[in-house]
Design a protein around this nucleic acid. Structure first.
Lengths: 187, 187
DNA sequence: GAAATACTATACCAATCACCATAATATAGA
DNA sequence: TCTATATTATGGTGATTGGTATAGTATTTC
């Protein structure tokens, strides 16, 4: 149910998809849904966000564990997002964004879950990079660069919806590199 | 009606707001709505996007016409977006994004209108900057830097919804500066 | 002033929305 | 095997959705 909902939300947004479609897509009956999610659709949205957060965290681990340096990992992460977006027919955006923009700031649970996911990604990428770069780059600089990277991925993902192209997503890599370079330049 | 719809869409998304609320907010009766928008809600969405595109275009003109240089203008544009976001109680996102993510790529009219607005913004900012910088910066470099800037604004706007802070939006300025610097470095 | 057009108002439509009640069926623990 | 719990299945709830039909009133145009 969570996977089916995520796929639909990512393409058409939270309110753009009805419960009936999610259930028919997942094959689960209505009764089962309200058994597992007594709070209804809102609770499902939270599960989608948390699941999406975990999924990306795993992807970060994969990409960074087999990378030579931080920029290599960033390059592969960016390509991974772009590839998935292209494979979906340029239709599937970020699972967190798709819900965040329709329920924030009213729904505090959704907001903090999304914020949590974002912060976790940044922390993970910074930590991986610190060990990859072995003290050659400061934590401060990496933190700044990865915050810029997250913003660029999210922004690129949106603009890519308009262009129906992966080019805006791919710019995230360059934005990371130039931000890091500028941060290192100021000392 | 367009203004009321824009304000609501920006906070809760296209499908998150019903026609009834838009009408009661704007004070217009239902009959008037379908007189002016025979195609219904979809047509209103298109009008919101086009109106939002024009509004930002005007804002770009204002900001760039009274700027000393490109970076000065970018700084003030960024602050303007951040200020408006803060004033709205950290709730109002980009009017185009709020509709784009729920109707793309299925609705081609919406997609191309959004893409059009984005491209117009970039063209305008590049043209203004070219005349401000008087040949000191290449068109290519400016084009790249402003594409990064747009992505950063859109991405920052999203992350700001999660943090309930203007900090992510403010990063767009730095992302523009570092991207332009890197572009100028490669010659 | 008559005719045509622009706009408003009201009531209504079928479809869909999220949600729930309840009965039937698995599954597990003693 | 009996009992308690977990899960599934079905059929429906009222409310709201976007949209329409139609009658009416301004407003303009000739």
């Amino acid at each position: 149910m969570i996977d089916a909902a995520a796929e639909l939300f990512r393409a058409r947004g939270y309110h753009g998809v009805g419960l009936a479609e999610i259930l028919s897509e997942s094959g689960a009956p209505k009764g089962s849904f309200y058994h597992h999610f007594p709070q209804g659709k809102d609770e499902l949205a939270l599960a989608v966000i948390e699941n999406g957060g975990r999924f990306v965290s795993k992807f970060i681990n994969e990409v960074f564990e087999s990378a030579r340096n931080a920029e290599d990992a960033v390059s592969r992460f960016t390509s991974g997002v772009a590839y998935a977006f292209k494979e979906s027919g340029f239709s599937q955006g970020c699972p967190i964004t798709s819900i965040l923009l329709e329920l924030t700031p009213k729904d505090e649970a959704v907001r903090s879950a999304a914020n949590n996911a974002f912060e976790t990604w940044i922390e993970k990428m910074v930590a991986h990079s610190l060990s990859l770069e072995q003290g050659k780059v400061s934590r401060q600089a990496l933190d700044k660069a990865f915050r810029a990277f997250l913003i660029a991925i999210e922004g690129g993902w949106i603009v890519a919806r308009a262009t129906q192209t992966v080019a805006p997503i791919m710019m995230a890599h360059e934005i990371f590199a130039s931000t890091l370079k500028m941060e290192l330049g100021r000392r």
